[in-house]
Design a protein around this nucleic acid. Sequence first.
DNA 1: CAACGACATTCCTATACTGACATGTCTAAC
DNA 2: GTTAGACATGTCAGTATAGGAATGTCGTTG
Lengths: 180, 180
Amino acid sequence: MSLRHALLGLLQDHPASGYDLLHLFNTSLANVWPATQSQVYGELVKLTDAGLLAVGAEGPRGRKEYSITEPGRAELVHWLVETEPTQVPRSESLLRVFFLGNLTAAEAQRYLRKRETTAEGAHAQLRGIEQAISGDDADLAVYGRVALEYGLRFSAMERDWARWAQAEVARIKQAGTPAD
Amino acid sequence: MSLRHALLGLLQDHPASGYDLLHLFNTSLANVWPATQSQVYGELVKLTDAGLLAVGAEGPRGRKEYSITEPGRAELVHWLVETEPTQVPRSESLLRVFFLGNLTAAEAQRYLRKRETTAEGAHAQLRGIEQAISGDDADLAVYGRVALEYGLRFSAMERDWARWAQAEVARIKQAGTPAD
DNA sequence: CAACGACATTCCTATACTGACATGTCTAAC
DNA sequence: GTTAGACATGTCAGTATAGGAATGTCGTTG
């Protein structure tokens, strides 16, 4: 149920419509917490019913401007300070690694090489973002930069691990069963 | 829908009951792809209906021994070789980082310190597992070890990042707004 | 002014997942 | 013998997520 807190966090700085928020999800939070249109609109209604958000003036095209209320602010801080992250993140790609023994060594290496390429691509993309925001000094940009650093380190780690794993598979192929 | 492939993968080596599989999930796959009892039992029925699994002899206490069929094996290999991981992994803890600007610098640092401790603990736990399996040479253990190495590198990266982030917050606190 | 693209919301279906509850059997210990 | 605990499966209600269909409005441009 982090979606509601993500919405509260985004609305902390300034009011926005569902449409705006959807775009924010698809851009800034896409790699951390993606959300679909039906999720965002539905959750906004629930948050409003719960009194954590309020609808301000209606704009053109039936646009509703949501803003955070005091209880909403309190809930956000409560979530940040007093609750622990509970989700065990599932990793589909790591799950596959457990079962690579069902493939030939060459096939397993192909898989790992693909992972290396993907990680390298992600790393390059984040480097680009880093360049783009390097001037800004606002609070959001500060912690955005901290999150970005996480992404940079993570993708570098994945790339290096995938390289190491390929070498490891090669080592085992040589030493033991020639599975290809 | 990776649960079904996880089950196929676990049944590749030897038949097992739902109960066995549940324990495998809670132990070996707990950090990669956790699953609940209702999920496992439900999915086993679906997989059997689809012909990817077959029920062998019934044991005591109504125990059903599931084994993988040829179509099941084919599906597993298909999944490994021909499909790409699609899931964008959600990270609740990283999501929080984006909104740490709503806290005081001291509170933000407390959050990051907690993350550092958690990562350190995970790293230590994996080190323990590494010691325990160091003798084994079976295929599953080989790729289990590759996955373990991922976990080791990941937890080390998280720990180091959390340390760096704390220093970064301190640096900004000094330089700009004294938010505490 | 017509038409198109961006804006903006609501509703619907299907699947995935969680947590709890219900039910029963076997084995070992007391 | 009976009771506690491990073994073993099944079901259900509620929530989360994905994806898309339906509907309509505003602003710009030819």
